[in-house]
C-alpha cells in the first residue's frame, strides 16, 4: 500500500485555481521530485498533501498513523521570539539530548544546538529544519524548495544529505525544486508539474519527454547526465550550468 496518495486533486492559491486533476502516490523508500516552473502549483500541491490546504476537488489518503517530516521553503521567525536550536528541535514533541545531537550530525550541522535560530546562516538554518524533521522518525520526508538561498555547491551538498538520510531512515522523500540538474540526479522518479502533471517517470525518461523539454528547454539534458555520474564529487563546478530560471 502507498504511504500517501492523492487522486484528482484540484486546488486554488490566492483565489486562483493553480492545480487540476493531479494524482500521485508515494511508495516507501522512494525519492520523488516535483519540478515545474514558477506558479506551476508545486508548493500548493505540497500544502495539500500535508493538509494545510483543503483541495477544491479530489482526495488525499494517508497510511494510518503516517509520520510526515516537513521542511518548509523558508521559515520566518519573528525577532521578538527567542529560541535556541535545541529548543526548536523539541517542537512539537520533546526529544532526548543524544537524539538531538545525532539528528544535527545527520543533517550536517553538529554543534549548533546552543545557538539562537536567528544567528544561523541560510544553509545552517535549512539543515536545522531538516534535523527537526528527521527527529520524528518520518516515513515521508517532504521538502519545499529547501535549498532556496543556498549557492550551488551548498544545495548539491544539501541533496546529498537527503540521500544519506533516506539511506539511514529508509523514509520516502517527496521534494519540490526548480534546480533540476541538482535534484533530478538524486531522484528515483520525477513528476513534471505545470498546473497538471505533464509527464513523470525516471529522470532519464522525463528529461527526454517533449512536455518537459517544452517547459525547460533541452539544455538541461546534458547537465543531467553529467550530474548523474558525478554528483558525489565536488570537482564539476567548472562546467557551464544552464540556469533553469532562464528557461522559465
Amino acid at each position: 500500500m502507498s504511504l500517501l496518495s492523492a487522486t484528482g486533486i484540484a486546488a486554488a492559491h490566492d483565489g486562483q485555481v493553480v492545480l487540476h486533476d493531479v494524482s500521485l502516490a508515494l511508495e516507501p523508500g522512494e525519492i520523488v521530485t516535483i519540478v515545474g516552473p514558477n506558479g506551476s502549483g508545486k508548493s500548493t500541491l505540497l500544502r495539500v498533501l500535508i493538509s494545510a490546504l483543503k483541495p477544491l476537488r479530489g482526495k488525499v489518503t494517508r497510511a494510518p498513523g503516517l509520520r510526515i517530516g516537513y521542511v518548509p521553503q523558508r521559515l520566518h521567525i519573528d525577532p521578538t521570539l527567542p529560541i535556541t536550536v535545541r529548543r526548536f528541535l523539541n517542537l512539537p514533541h520533546g526529544v532526548a539530548d543524544p537524539d538531538a545531537t545525532t539528528a544535527l550530525e545527520h543533517a550536517g550541522v553538529p554543534g549548533v544546538a546552543g545557538q539562537q535560530m536567528a544567528s544561523l546562516s541560510g544553509g545552517q538554518f535549512q539543515r536545522v529544519l531538516l534535523a527537526r524533521a528527521i527527529l520524528g522518525r518520518p516515513q515521508v520526508l517532504m521538502l519545499d524548495e529547501a535549498t532556496q538561498g543556498l549557492d550551488q555547491p551548498g544545495s548539491a551538498a544539501f541533496y546529498r544529505q537527503i540521500e544519506a538520510v533516506r539511506a539511514e531512515l529508509g523514509c520516502a522523500v517527496l521534494m519540490v525544486s526548480h534546480e533540476l540538474h541538482v535534484v533530478m540526479s538524486a531522484s528515483d522518479r520525477v513528476i513534471c508539474l505545470n498546473g497538471h502533471i505533464c509527464c513523470e517517470g525516471t529522470p532519464e525518461v522525463v528529461s527526454a519527454a517533449p512536455a518537459y523539454r517544452e517547459l525547460f528547454g533541452t539544455g538541461t539534458g546534458g547537465a543531467l547526465a553529467l550530474y548523474r555520474h558525478t554528483h558525489d564529487h565536488d570537482h564539476d563546478h567548472d562546467h557551464p550550468h544552464p540556469e533553469i530560471e532562464a528557461a522559465e
Partner: peptide, 13 residues
C-alpha cells in the same frame, strides 16, 4: 508555539 512559528509546520505535525 509550533503554530506560532509556522502554520505549515503545525499542519504537517
Amino acid at each position: 508555539l509550533t503554530a506560532t512559528l509556522s502554520p505549515d509546520l503545525a499542519y504537517a505535525a
